[in-house]
Design a protein around this nucleic acid. Structure first.
Lengths: 338, 338
DNA sequence: CTGAAAGCGCTTACAG
DNA sequence: CTGAAAGCGCTTACAG
């Protein structure tokens, strides 16, 4: 906890001026400073374990090498995979991250602007419209998993409708004709995913799927699945818009004596929980490509910071399919008494 | 993206000196600056939307109002509940957080020291010995869920042995005499939790529990549970050291036609996944009190920052029990043919 | 080849 | 009651 050495300390020890220290340590000494003094400066710096004070550097350069992250920092929402990828891409580019709550009022965004972050990235846990606080306009900003049409900022989102389409096609291609959907009770992601499923069945000339607006918890999935599977014409396959719903469906199936995929097929859409593919049997899923999106977003931001001029883009990312062991052909069966 | 106003701008607009602006805006004007000029300064500041540059402030005050967080930022480890609580406590105290990877080499801790963070908090996802990088000694540091005996820093950890004891007692009190344990394959937390269970059975005069070192995934729990339940003298109750193991056990039980808790009782220890208590049936669990620990840790750090002198403490936190619906009396039963 | 000065934006003694 | 100066720690023109 002792005082850190400054450039002045190094200069004193080496017997040169402060400017000489700066030049040597920043590699602009040749042709300006004699060999001998250069060596003296380097030795002194080493001995004092000198590294420049980044705060002073920032004041002078008007750059802090810091990016503000606006996110949903509570345990139920924090978007792990997205944040991890943002972190990795940021540190690769030499940036540090300061994370604050995106929705808290009064916002801490002003505090970040005062601290002169070089840019902002908003990282939403799930696709959502995000009316950004005005303060973000102070520096280049990129929106991940969200958008604000009123803001001149790039926005990167997954193709949720396409994800729903892919999920439904997996089941239709396997021969299923009666699909059920376990959906969240609210949220744009859930809504669009259901749209995709509905469109796929319509395209195939089938009746629309039965949609249960269950919620987001395992228990919601359990209850919803029991409801669907106890109906008059029970679906032979379920699409779940969230991973915890898929888990609930799996548990409900087990309780009803239904085997997956023999008696019931299951597809889950990805919400960043890293859960569906871990289950037994592994649930076939349509991935939300968090890592790709986040990495791309940060690269875009860093590029803007480097160039100095904004470059607004709205990008949509395809959601790839990952086969598990939860999809099979439909089997006609007697109604379970639930 | 226009230039931010400075104190000089405010002074010019108000027709006073820079120092006057500072005094007025920091509430030290009375008796120094005339009412009229005070008002002028306030108006000018408002009009220019002036807020002080925090970088300049930091350079002068040698305080940044920033805390460095060392953690495990990949998706499989990031300790959500702990980080959430750290964030909340920090912002309540007026601090911002800069998060970096605790184990990456070369470490980014030096970058944080250069940026003059006021302190460090290390947040581990699971109890572990953590040989801290030397650079953290530059400022007050607190360790959460980890410890470094060689470091003069406070350390806050859960009582893992006690958690194991509590888990076992829940089952012993319900009448179980043959316990099985699904444990992680490595890790101090798993180790100590198993110790607790073993001690509890010994205290009760029983044979030691059968311990399966399964791993950490759902599939590991599934496989381990099937193994345990297919043995000659199958346990009537399982303790799982991790939540995903408990989920695996639940799925295995369903596959084997065993009802929880009628045919098999289940207790899970908490690893911050927020999963066990969400299942159907809700699994009885012994909580790792993440929020309490993290809040306490940050309060301790902030107190040290305020006082300016270190105050090293080693604190252990009790893990409370949360009853679910997965524990019942033992039932004698025929061996399932798994 | 080298040192003194200016300036990034702030606040706090210090003269008047 | 008010303004000019010093200084936090750096780098970059600018004189010599």
């Amino acid at each position: 906890m002792t005082r850190r050495a400054t450039a002045q300390d190094v200069a004193d020890l080496a017997g040169v001026s402060r400017s000489a220290v700066s030049l040597v340590l920043n590699g602009r000494a040749d042709g300006n400073i004699s060999r001998a003094k250069q060596e003296a400066v380097r030795e002194a710096a080493e001995q004092l374990r000198y590294t420049p004070n980044a705060v002073a550097l920032s004041l002078r350069s008007k750059r802090t090498g810091t990016i503000g992250v606006l996110t949903w920092p509570d345990r139920r929402h924090m978007p792990l995979a997205l944040l991890g990828a943002v972190y990795t891409a940021a540190s690769r580019a030499g940036y540090l991250l300061m994370m604050v709550d995106a929705v808290q009022r009064p916002t801490q965004v002003d505090a970040l602007v005062d601290r002169r972050v070089d840019g902002f990235v908003v990282v939403a846990p799930e696709l959502t419209a995000y009316p950004a606080p005005e303060a973000v306009t102070a520096v280049p900003t990129v929106l991940v998993n969200c958008f604000d049409d009123a803001l001149a900022a790039s926005s990167l989102v997954p193709d949720e409708v396409g994800a729903g389409l892919s999920a439904a096609h997996l089941l239709l291609d396997a021969g299923h004709r009666v699909l059920g959907v376990l959906a969240g009770r609210e949220g744009l992601a859930s809504e669009r995913r259901v749209q995709g499923v509905t469109r796929a069945t319509a395209d195939a000339g089938l009746a629309p799927p039965v949609v249960v607006e269950a919620g987001h918890s395992v228990e919601d999935g359990y209850d919803g699945a029991r409801r669907l599977l106890s109906s008059d014409l029970p679906p032979t396959a379920l699409v779940c818009t969230h991973e915890r719903l898929a888990l609930g469906a799996l548990l409900a199936a087990a309780d009803l004596g239904l085997r997956v995929p023999d008696d019931l097929s299951l597809v889950s859409l990805d919400d960043g929980e890293d859960l569906a593919s871990q289950l037994v049997p592994a649930v076939t899923r349509v991935e939300r490509p968090d890592e790709v999106i986040a990495t791309h977003a940060l690269d875009l931001l860093v590029e803007q910071l480097r160039l100095g001029h904004p470059d607004v883009r709205r990008l949509t990312f395809v959601c790839p399919v990952h086969a598990g062991e939860s999809v099979g052909p439909p089997r006609l069966r007697a109604m379970p008494t639930g």
